[in-house]
């Protein structure tokens, strides 16, 4: 929108501009202190070695980054991270979508169900992970107990390297489900009733209505969820720390967990290497988000 021609004197305009900056100042200050400086500090640390106590000791340039390039373990960490994102985002968003579409049917008690499905949102990662830990326990777990009643052998949910990531992903999907259902429910609620009504008059219902009308109109919400879930998955920490501690044999060591291990776990205080990995994480998150906005958003229909 073009600015209306200003009728004020240049001095007054200057005052206005100063006022604008004054209003912006608090948020800029907060931004600089809590975002700008830590970011700068992360880059700074990533270029330094550490002394015994984790303080930066000497400049090493890009050595921490080149170490990462040559590390097979780090390659595995990146692959695990990518797999974890796929395993949580795709089923998490599709599952929530199916649930929300089913909740559209006019059955009794649908409001109760809707609240029930949104409930995981109220759980903290830590408490939910502890509960899942009880489910997954190899000897006393609820899930293996159920399997045994069904006459099936126990599953090493968290103790086998082929199962562990899947099990952690399952807990993560459950954790995210509430939020996803909440967002998509709000999305459906915001679809103009005339549109669905018109489609119904044209004879569309059920699957056809969902596929051709509801889902396309949910596009912005679905896109939002994919972006947010991806970032969430890239930063998942609590459930991994509580359920598997990155194991067994590194099978659930994602990028964030690797940063934590380098910086804080097992008496390690290798803040240089940890910061370098944190920078890689930042780049990965930025790249994922940029790709999603660049490629996917074009197909999203904003009504």
């Amino acid at each position: 929108m073009p600015r209306p021609p200003s009728t004020t004197a240049p001095a007054a305009r200057l005052g206005e501009r100063a006022l604008a900056w004054a209003f912006l100042l608090p948020s800029l200050a907060v931004f600089a202190v809590f975002l700008g400086y830590p970011l700068y500090r992360t880059f700074y640390l990533s270029a330094h070695a550490n002394d015994l106590f984790g303080a930066p000791s000497r400049y090493v340039g890009l050595r921490h980054y080149t170490d990462l390039l040559g590390s097979a373990e780090f390659g595995r960490t990146l692959a695990t991270t990518a797999l974890f994102v796929l395993l949580t985002v795709v089923p998490g968003v599709i599952g929530a979508l199916l649930l929300v579409l089913l909740l559209e049917s006019r059955i009794r008690g649908v409001r109760v169900l809707r609240s029930a499905f949104a409930l995981p949102f109220a759980f903290s990662v830590a408490s939910a992970a502890v509960v899942f830990g009880v489910f997954y326990n190899p000897a006393t777990g609820v899930l293996n107990g159920l399997l045994s009643h069904l006459g099936s052998g126990p599953v090493p949910w968290l103790t086998d390297r082929h199962h562990a990531l899947l099990s952690v992903a399952l807990a993560t999907i459950w954790l995210n489900l509430g939020y996803n259902v909440l967002v998509l429910s709000a999305g459906i609620g915001s679809i103009a009733p005339e549109i669905t009504e018109a489609a119904r008059l044209d004879g569309a219902s059920g699957w056809r209505l969902a596929r051709s009308v509801t889902v396309p109109l949910l596009g912005p919400h679905l896109f939002f969820l994919v972006v947010v879930s991806t970032i969430n998955a890239l930063q998942s920490f609590g459930q991994i720390n509580i359920l598997t501690q990155g194991g067994p044999d590194g099978a659930t060591r994602t990028l964030v967990y690797s940063v934590y291990e380098k910086a804080f776990a097992y008496g390690s205080s290798d803040f240089g290497a940890a910061s370098a990995q944190a920078v890689v994480l930042l780049v990965v998150v930025l790249a994922c988000t940029a790709v999603q906005f660049g490629l996917v958003e074009r197909r999203v229909h904003y009504s």
Binding site: P38, R41, A55, I231, S275
Partner: peptide
């Protein structure tokens, strides 16, 4: 995105807290 910012801030603070 907010969570990312928060996480960055937390991580940053943690890192700065350990440097002097």
């Amino acid at each position: 995105m907010r969570k990312l910012l928060v996480a960055t801030v937390v991580a940053g603070l943690a890192l700065t807290a350990c440097s002097s």
